[in-house]
Amino acid sequence: MSIDIEKLKAISSQVRRDIIRQVASANSGHPGGSLGCADFFTAMYFHILKHDPNFNMDGRNEDMFFLSNGHISPVWYSTLSRSGYFPIDELATFRKINSRLQGHPATHEGLPGIRIASGSLGQGLSAAIGAALAKKLNKDDRNVFVLMGDGELQEGQVWEAMMFAAHHTIDNLIAIVDWNGQQIDGPNDSVMSLGDLPAKWKSFDWKVSEIDGHDFGNIINTVEKCIDNCGNGYPQVILMKTEMGKGVDFMEGTHHWHGKAPNAEQTINALSQLKETLGDY
């Protein structure tokens, strides 16, 4: 399928507006990582994934996507609703009482598109491996994707899962790391350095790719190449360079907007930088 980059850019601009408006309205949430992953989510849900918005929990015969760093829920909620999983107006309920859009993603309220709760970090890769094993048992040739934060790689469970995936040749799984170099308390390198991240994954016997998470062509071509590579007997990871806060100049490149909502004035400023392309909710 040819890539309509202009269409994807228009969608991701609206997704970024949705992120700012959700977080501003709730006066809480995580705009930084959400904005940084807006292009990736747009590429996944509007081009790459073979998925059914008439949601089936078991994901039989479709691609399955897991979000391990659940705090970037605003970008996921926006892309899910904009691709037809639930009404776009529901974004207005984000983080409010009686909502299906919990602060961190959850299955408990039955929000279509979510397959497991995440928020407590380091758990998503294991769940994705389980789903990938089930697909193999079911002779289902679709694949499983999981997005993780770079900071959450500090959790030991991730490395348990990395070891398992290589040992058990989980080759229908593609992991993506949002490699923005930032976490709540500051840059990864000052909080707890990840060191030579590509070398670490390689030494765990994963095939490693590196991409620019704001270049639609680069995202799509690389993920599709990994998809073609599935079934070859090894797990694959894409280390995706992104900029936290991408698209809103005063939020870019700093950890200060990891988990903070903009005030009214900042919200107006942010939205003035993001074109309304598909209509606000």
Binding site: D58, R115, G124, S126, A127, I129, G130, A131, Q157, F164
Partner: peptide, 21 residues
């Protein structure tokens, strides 16, 4: 599935297997 001495991963993998039925 032998998961080795890695119980946290075992619980997560079990959750994923259950998700897929």
């Amino acid at each position: 599935f032998q998961v080795g001495i890695a119980e946290a991963n075992m619980m997560g993998i079990a959750a994923g297997l259950a998700t897929a039925g």
